[in-house]
Design a protein around this nucleic acid. Structure first.
Lengths: 340, 340
DNA sequence: ATTAAAAATGCAATCGATTGCATGGATATA
DNA sequence: TATATCCATGCAATCGATTGCATTTTTAAT
């Protein structure tokens, strides 16, 4: 039961009376090596139970064929869809993917970023934590020309490819939908404005109101971190206000859920008294009663696109001359919480 | 904007006119080095912007300080809780964690396992895919003394520490609860029996029936892969049977959900006509109407325990003389779907 | 048959940190 | 003072694959 020593390319070379460099090239399908010897070498490698030492190769080449991914929370449907999309492309292209979650916590994101950096990932795909306001932990990547691709929650200060959805448009559409249902007093539960996506959702909401000649001074917009508890606090505050809304646009489904639960418990009818629209199409949104109208984002496609972009950058090794921001379409899903 | 070359321990050594080995030892807090020189070296390293080359160290030491984790699906609440528990302990102990999902697919699990193996993770924590029936892709780890810890879905054929919950007891308790509510005809939607957890849940169910002097020949137990669709097919089949049940125990919450939706759509009252109990306490289980009675598993603690066990094994480097199977307690949460 | 060109293979350095063993110096003991 | 002991540091090999350049072999062209 003792460890048998690993076979190396040198063992193979000795066995065949050739040079280790030839073995290395053959195994990597380097065209310098003739068909015949390549075959012979591969056969022998197989027979000797050769396993390439990835650590040695990584060390030598300074590449790891690994893509680091940081998301706020892996068990959010949107993020896990993105991860699946990333894996889909990455595995096809021979890249490994290592996933981490920041829990929306800056310190954790910071630590993870440094760990991935130390471990020399070839590229980083991420959606930043809610708390994150400084970017030194990301600059270390760009400083050394390690490509970054942002998705969803991007960072303006850093030049990189970005995959986003049209949050402004989606929020506009959601709000317009509420207006179309005859609602006049539409409040909003929004996210932290240091994140552009929440800023955009808020702007879309405001624009839709403005275009319809509506306004909402009070209770207006309540910003928070969009947790279940934040949502409950917000809806409570909204309903305690002097002017009660007849609709609420929530910047995520979680707070839409908090709102629905609170309103139901307090005798309000949804959507008759108050209509609700959420954001992200979490699986639970169609399961609760009433089901939640929401915005569906193409998570899987976002992940695929992000992986494609980062792999391209990794392969061509030089900084692209310009960075693009790709906007993918969203879809408004109308369900019971806002349908009259 | 060009790459400045990385500082190495040799650069530091040259700067201070000492040997690289001394630098290496100092930076690793090796007690052989005196306090004074250690300080001096660390200061200089800091000043020169030294970053250890993890790849070189990994290569030399044949260790990566990385724990591989494979779960069926990262966006299942149970699994993401386990992952959080693993990360909690691992980060404290200076280990990185790389997470992958098998999608319950054998081929993918196989590929991931080989990739983690090639990348020389120091240990592997996993819950196997539903489809998995052979274990060569795991034997490669044990063959080279790389520790494995199973959680939840374990494999009997492989000797390793295992963290499980008492599926038998939990299923027994769930079924007993239905019996206590006066139900006599209790059907079951079960999982694939190659996985011990589903076998155990089924056995617990059977034992509870037996102890109560009940039986359920028809429709009895329907085994499938426990997806939404499988659940719908199963409940349809159950309700098409000649003897209709007055309660159903489902081996997960997903099929409990399918059942509830189907039954509601077909005019059955839950729990009056049919009571339902699920398994796992997915977040949606408390959100649907009626809320689903279920079994809560201590995911976070399972993850912590798994990480502890694997790190211990990694540190002591030799195969433990015996392997333990740790069983953590579950909790029956009674909600509306089974409460009269 | 001779030379040029192309193709295939070999040589040897290299990546950066770690570590067993050797060595030099300081301290303690007799 | 001489010798043994301990502490701190240095030397040099090593991990295994990759790669620029040199060299040999083969093929093609005259």
């Amino acid at each position: 039961m003792k460890q048998k020593p690993e076979t190396t390319i040198h063992d193979i070379a000795r066995e065949l009376n050739i040079a280790a460099s030839t073995v290395s090239r053959a195994l990597n399908d380097n065209p310098l090596i003739s068909e015949a010897t390549r075959e012979k070498i591969k056969k022998t490698a197989e027979r000797m139970g050769y396993r390439p030492n990835v650590l040695a190769a990584n060390f030598r080449t300074k590449r790891t064929n690994t893509i680091g991914v940081i998301v706020p929370l892996i068990n959010r449907h949107f993020f896990s869809s993105v991860i699946s999309g990333i894996e889909d492309i990455a595995y096809q292209q021979g890249f490994a993917v290592t996933i981490s979650q920041s829990n929306d916590n800056f310190e954790k994101e910071n630590k993870i970023a440094h760990s991935l950096f130390q471990n020399r990932v070839d590229g980083l795909i991420l959606s930043i934590a809610m708390e994150t306001q400084t970017y030194d932990h990301l600059k270390i990547f760009t400083d050394r020309n390690i490509p970054i691709v942002f998705f969803d929650r991007e960072v303006e200060e850093i030049e990189a490819h970005k995959i986003v959805v049209d949050d402004f448009g989606a929020a506009y559409q959601a709000t317009k939908h509420l207006i179309d249902q005859g609602r006049k007093r539409i409040a909003m539960i929004g996210g932290p404005l240091n994140l552009k996506i929440y800023k955009n959702r808020q702007d879309g909401y405001c624009q839709a109101l403005k275009d319809a000649g509506l306004s909402m001074e009070e209770p207006g917009i309540l910003n928070n971190s969009l947790t279940r508890e934040d949502g409950t606090r917000a809806i409570k505050k909204i309903m305690d206000s002097t002017v009660k809304p007849d609709a609420i646009f929530c910047a995520n489904d979680t707070t839409a859920l908090s709102s629905i639960i609170y309103l139901k418990n307090n005798g309000f009818k949804i959507p008759e008294n108050i209509a609700i629209v959420g954001f992200s199409n979490e699986p639970f949104s169609e399961l609760v009663t009433p089901s939640i109208s929401t915005i569906k984002q193409p998570g899987f496609e976002i992940g695929q696109k992000a992986a494609e972009l980062i792999i391209n950058q990794i392969k061509q090794k030089k900084k692209p001359s310009s960075f693009e921001t790709i906007t993918l379409p969203t879809e408004l899903i109308i369900r019971d919480s806002s349908r009259c």
